[in-house]
Amino acid sequence: MDIRENLAQIGEELKQELAKTDALQPLEALRVKVLGKKGSLTALLRGMGQLSPEERPKMGQMINEAREKLTALLDEKQAELAAKEKEMRLAAEAIDITEPRDLPLIGAEHPMNLVLDEVLDCFTNLGFSVVEGPEVELDLYNFELLNVPKNHPARDAQDTFYIDDNIVLRSQTSPVQARTMLTKKPPIRIVCPGRVFRADEVDATHSPVFHQIEGLVIDKDVTMADLKGTLDAFAKRLYGSDIEVRFRPSFFPFTEPSAEVDLTCFNCHGKGCRVCKGTGWIEVLGCGMVNPKVLEMCGIDSKVYSGFAFGIGLERITMLRYGIKDMRLLYEGDLRFLKQFR
């Protein structure tokens, strides 16, 4: 048989075989059958020895061309089958993506720390340093240096726990002010978060343990308008840019003039609702210009320096922020409550 016919036959047979092949393994066998050492095409090549020297190059070229063609056919089929097999494998690997599994655990910080972080973030960005002081405190710092001498009725507002005559559980974070003024020179810009204690029985709005954040600024020419500006920045940062601050006259022994600060009710945005008892305002904190007597007692010249101070109740702003109606939830540690603060 003519080599040419043989080549045509091999090609034709391969095409037929390929059409029947539907897996990679038989395909590989087919490749060997045709192109392998004992393959049909290789056999033809071996048979070239019988050809005349004139025919040999021509036939050689013909066989090589056929080889390339057949290889291309096989490769094409292989690619096709490989793609098909991959597709099948991926299809077989499909999983139920809705099975709940392998959830990494998540936890959460206490809601008061979430709010405290925001408050501290706001004030540290305004150049305030965070300073802490002892929770068990000298009466001297908690009261006397803050213009509340012994047997002063202003002590009534803060039913204080005593350790002995001179040591109290601090009833406010203000003693940190006094400690700072005694040890640092102005300019002073500090915030002092911490626990405070008052002899209140536990109920939905009272706790013998609670938290305050005290702020103090001492510098030359500090005004009540600066105080309002600082608290305005705080209010807008925490509760939104439409929140306004309102000052109302008040009294604290360590500030003069003093003010209670109301914020636009963040529930109704000032329209009046249950949260703000219809007034559109929510009382949030107390503040004032540091009483010159306090400055003098703490060794700061009140003729040169002035300053302001404020005290924020962390429980109150946390409860307002998250609509918590009972303060006891904050101290019970019930996971059904804590898990809501992810």
Binding site: L126, V130, V222, A225, K228
Partner: peptide, 28 residues
């Protein structure tokens, strides 16, 4: 000052911002 301000009206206190040397703030 407080007596005067009470009746001049606390609502007249404007909003201004701290001036002077800005200390480096931060957590302890």
């Amino acid at each position: 000052c407080e007596e005067v301000l009470r009746y001049a009206g606390y609502e007249r206190i404007p909003i201004t911002h701290l001036r002077g040397e800005t200390p480096m703030g931060g957590l302890n």
